[in-house]
C-alpha cells in the first residue's frame, strides 16, 4: 500500500466500529495457530474485511474504479490427489493487508490433465491497485496454456514457454481492461506501461507428470518470472532451491525489485527441467514465505520441513502457510506437490 492510503485506512478505522471484539479475543478464538520463533505483534492484528478502495488516481482517461476483486477471501486452500501425486495449496492474506483492510494479492492455480499436474503460484506486485487481478489472471491463464500444449502431445522440454507467458501477459492486460470497462464503461486501450503500473504479478509454473513414477524420478518443468521461488524438499537433502535465490541469502541490506507480467523481456523469464525423486516434494512459493525461508537453513526451513514431510491435512496446511513470525507480514502462497 502506498503511503497515500494510510489516511484511507485511518478513515476506515474511524468509520467502521470494531469495538465489539478486540484483537486479543480474536486471537484467542483462533483454534489453529502455527508459530515460528517470535510471533511479533500478530496477536494485536485485528483483521479487517477488505473494503473497496476509493478511486484515487487517474491513468489516462481511466479513473481507477472501485477495486474489482476486493471480495477475494482472506484464505483459500486445496488438497487433492491427482494420478499418483498429492497436492496441497494455500494462499493467505498477510497481516499487513489484514490490518489495513486490503485484499490478498497472491494467488495460485492447479490444473490437472490426464497425464500432468500443472500448478502456478503468483504474487501481485503490491504497488499496483489491481495487482490481485494480475496474480489471478497470470496463474489461471498460464496453467491453461501449458495444459493445452501438453494435451496436444508436446513434451515438457519442448513446450513453447514464451507463448505461454505471452498468453499470461495478455490475460493480465485483458483483466485490467475488462474490470475498468465494467466499472467505468470506458472501452479505450491503456498503454502497456499504464496497465503494468495498475496490475502486475510475478509467477512460477510447474509441470509434473502425474503417472506412476519411473525409478529415476519424474522429469518436470519449471517456468518463472520475477521473485517467486521453487524448491525440492526431502529428508535426505533438505531444502534445495530450483530457482535462483536473492543474492545475499537475506544477510545484507534488504532491497526489493522484481520482474513481473504483463511486462515480458527476453531476459526476464527462466525455464528449467528438474527431476522429482520419489521421496521428494516440490514446493512453489511467493516471497511472503520465501524471504523468511532464506536458504532453508533457519528455523522457518526447519519448522516447515518438519510438517511437510508428508502431505498435511489441507486445513492444517493453510494454517502452516499462515505461520506467525515477527515482521513477515506479506501475503503468502504455497503449492506443494508430493511425489508419492
Amino acid at each position: 500500500m502506498t503511503a497515500e492510503s494510510i489516511d484511507d485506512v485511518d478513515g476506515i478505522a474511524e468509520v467502521g466500529d470494531t469495538g465489539d471484539i478486540d484483537a486479543e479475543e480474536f486471537a484467542e478464538s483462533a483454534p489453529c495457530t502455527f508459530r515460528i520463533g517470535d510471533p511479533g505483534s500478530h496477536e494485536e492484528v485485528l483483521p479487517r474485511l477488505a473494503l473497496p478502495a476509493e478511486p484515487h488516481a487517474e491513468y489516462g482517461n481511466f479513473p481507477v474504479p472501485v477495486c474489482p476483486g476486493w471480495r477475494k477471501p482472506d484464505t483459500v486452500f486445496d488438497g487433492a490427489r491427482h494420478g499418483s501425486l498429492t497436492v496441497r495449496a494455500a494462499s493467505t492474506r498477510g497481516d499487513g493487508h489484514r490490518h489495513g483492510g486490503t485484499p490478498r494479492q497472491d494467488d495460485y492455480c492447479l490444473y490437472g490433465t490426464d497425464d500432468w499436474l500443472v500448478a502456478a503460484v503468483a504474487d501481485g506486485v503490491s504497488q499496483g491497485a489491481l495487482s490481485h487481478l494480475a496474480a489471478e489472471a497470470a496463474a489461471e491463464t498460464g496453467c491453461h496454456a501449458l495444459a493445452t500444449q501438453l494435451r496436444a502431445g508436446v513434451a515438457p522440454e519442448e513446450l513453447d514457454c514464451e507463448s505461454v507467458l505471452r498468453d499470461s501477459a495478455k490475460a493480465v492486460v485483458r483483466a485490467v481492461h475488462h474490470s475498468l470497462a465494467r466499472e467505468t464503461g470506458e472501452t479505450g486501450v491503456l498503454p502497456l506501461g499504464a496497465v503494468a503500473q495498475l496490475a502486475s504479478a510475478a509467477v512460477v509454473y510447474a509441470v509434473v507428470p502425474a503417472g506412476a513414477a519411473p525409478e529415476a524420478g519424474r522429469e518436470a518443468l519449471l517456468l518463472w518470472v520475477g521473485d517467486v521461488t521453487a524448491w525440492t524438499l526431502s529428508d535426505a537433502k533438505g531444502w534445495l532451491p530450483l530457482t535462483e535465490l536473492k543474492a545475499d541469502g537475506g544477510k545484507k541490506v534488504v532491497t526489493g525489485t522484481t520482474a513481473a507480467l504483463p511486462l515480458l523481456g527476453r531476459e526476464s523469464w527462466h525455464r528449467a527441467m528438474f527431476t522429482l525423486a520419489a521421496d521428494e516434494v516440490v514446493v512453489l512459493m511467493t516471497d511472503g514465505v520465501g524471504d523468511a525461508l532464506g536458504d532453508g537453513s533457519g528455523e522457518v526451513g526447519t519448522a516447515l520441513h518438519s510438517v511437510w514431510r508428508r502431505p498435511p491435512e489441507p486445513h492444517a496446511f493453510a494454517a502452516q502457510v499462515d505461520y506467525q513470525r515477527s515482521t513477515f507480514t506479506d501475503d503468502r502462497t504455497v503449492v506443494g506437490i508430493w511425489a508419492s
Partner: peptide
C-alpha cells in the same frame, strides 16, 4: 514521524526501505 510510518508500510509492500512520506 509520518515518514517512519510510510517507510515501514512501504517495506510491507515490497519497497526498499526508507522514504519520506510523499503525501
Amino acid at each position: 514521524i509520518q515518514s517512519v510510518l510510510a517507510s515501514a508500510k512501504g517495506t510491507e509492500e515490497g519497497a526498499d526501505g526508507f522514504v519520506l512520506d510523499p503525501d
